[in-house]
Design a binder for these strands. Structure first.
Lengths: 149, 149
DNA sequence: GTTGAAAAAATATTGAG
DNA sequence: CTCAATATTTTTTCAAC
């Protein structure tokens, strides 16, 4: 799908606040809300907008610890290993990467003890596991939900 | 703020779809929409809900490449380096980590050439830069916007 | 593609249990 | 905290340009 400047302006607003009323978006980009409605619908249809999500404060719901985990996966076990990783509670992202690790995970846990449990009892225990490195996130200096459009 | 099961049920729904009408949430959790309204308001107030964001497909808006970048920062340059990193276009997350790297970034670029430009012309050019490792994300097997509540 | 206006639906507010 | 009723606002639709 081809996006023009108007579409990108709408996306910028909805990335920042998905609950901005169409009438308010219309005011900001100087068009009618029917147009905004139409364009948003087409972008949803085309998969440009993948969804609308509430951002929940991890600490407020008991996830005090987060980490990036680099993993090496043994050959022949790729498929099942990825499947198992996806299904683990606390595993938020599973990326296939170049460089030192085959897979890098973003994981959440209640505390360091929960992280230990996730790492030793679930991840290291998987068939096909070979080695890992855990980079505990001491703090997140910056995290944007918005792509620079 | 203390969250009960009802609050968590509401959060689960809003994480999945931030535009779910309060009446629909009320139906799903078997309560009145005024209650839902009230609880959502209090969770927003308390910072449990940090915001509502449209998830935009990165490829659809021209970001075909993403990477994780491990960085070592020279002592005495921490503050200014973090500030500069935050301000770079394409830098989506800045995490302070234990392990091999002081900082790990999540970056987006149009293509590998854009990534090269970001790395060599902007990041490696910063004062206080010492060394880095770029882990290009070949594919994201799984990425959830939802915390497991 | 866009618009303005009408219809439908959802949300905010209020008062009471 | 919860409910029910009402007022307000937003979303959606549609004929017309």
């Amino acid at each position: 799908m081809e996006l023009d400047d108007t579409d990108r302006a709408i996306l910028r607003i909805l990335q920042r606040d998905a609950r901005t009323p169409f009438s308010e978006i219309a005011r900001q980009i100087d068009m009618s809300s029917a147009t905004v409605h139409d364009r948003v619908g087409r972008m949803e249809e085309a998969g440009v907008i993948e969804g609308y999500h509430a951002a929940v404060n991890p600490k407020a719901v008991g996830f005090g610890t987060s980490a990036l985990v680099g993993l090496t996966v043994e050959q022949g076990h790729e498929e099942e290993t990825l499947q198992q990783l996806r299904d683990l509670d606390g595993v938020q992202e599973v990326h296939l990467t170049t460089g030192e690790w085959d897979v890098v995970l973003r994981v959440y846990a209640a505390d360091t003890d929960g992280l230990r449990e996730l790492m030793f009892e679930h991840i290291a225990a998987m068939e096909g596991f070979s080695r890992s490195q855990t980079m505990v996130i001491l703090g997140t200096d910056y995290e944007s939900e918005e792509l620079p459009l």
